[in-house]
């Protein structure tokens, strides 16, 4: 249950940004852009929406920098804002965009059959994750794709540690049920 410390360089950037240094904040955006977009993408399943939500998150972070205290790792604080921004965006749009638009990420594979199976699996996994309730999904995404510890997830989402564990367990159980045929197929082929 390790808490990721704020690196000295990040701490310096955050401190300077808190004093109003825009270039320091720009550096933080550059550093955390892929991580934030990646987590939000897993949450909402749409790359464009994920980048929009990530932009919103960084702007909110800038506006609320004076409330940030280094007791919480910067990454967790940012993820928390980003996940809430993504859920807000999803709520506004009231629908999930087509997954096909974002599923052709790995074009150019040599084996068309393998590529097709890979795509099908990706779509299935993504659909299953997106079918989870938002609160449960957020816990799963932060654990599996954000790499946060249970305690960090609890801090980021402002929920008790026990809730993190129960939601994560429920999410995994649901995924195992939904993806059972594909998981069984993988066991056979491997």
């Amino acid at each position: 249950m390790e808490i990721t410390p704020l690196s000295a360089q990040d701490a310096d950037l955050v401190h300077r940004a808190q004093q109003g240094d825009r270039s320091a904040f720009a550096e933080l955006v550059r550093r955390y852009h892929p991580g934030v977009v990646g987590v939000v993408y897993r949450l909402c399943g749409d790359l464009q929406l994920a980048e929009d939500a990530a932009q919103e998150a960084f702007i909110k972070a800038w506006l609320n920098l004076n409330t940030y205290r280094p007791l919480m790792p910067w990454r967790n604080w940012l993820y928390r804002i980003a996940i809430n921004a993504a859920l807000d965006t999803l709520r506004r749009e009231r629908h999930l965009r087509s997954l096909n638009a974002t599923s052709d990420v790995r074009d150019g594979q040599s084996d068309p059959q393998a590529h097709l199976e890979q795509k099908e699996r990706e779509i299935r996994v993504r659909q299953t994750i997106l079918a989870l309730p938002p609160a449960t999904r957020a816990v799963l995404v932060l654990r599996e794709y954000g790499g946060l510890s249970y305690r960090e997830i609890a801090e980021a989402l402002d929920i008790p540690l026990g809730t993190v564990m129960s939601r994560l367990s429920a999410a995994r159980q649901r995924l195992r049920e939904q993806l059972a045929p594909w998981l069984a197929l993988q066991e056979v082929t491997s």
Binding site: F25, A26, H33, E51, L63, V105, E144, R172
Partner: peptide, 30 residues
Amino acid sequence: ALSAWLRDLPADLPLTPSERFTAQVMLRLP
């Protein structure tokens, strides 16, 4: 196996280049 499966989803997303993304954010900052 499930966790491995989940993490095996493509991570190499075609993101907007960091410089461009940062510029877009900075333009929108108050």
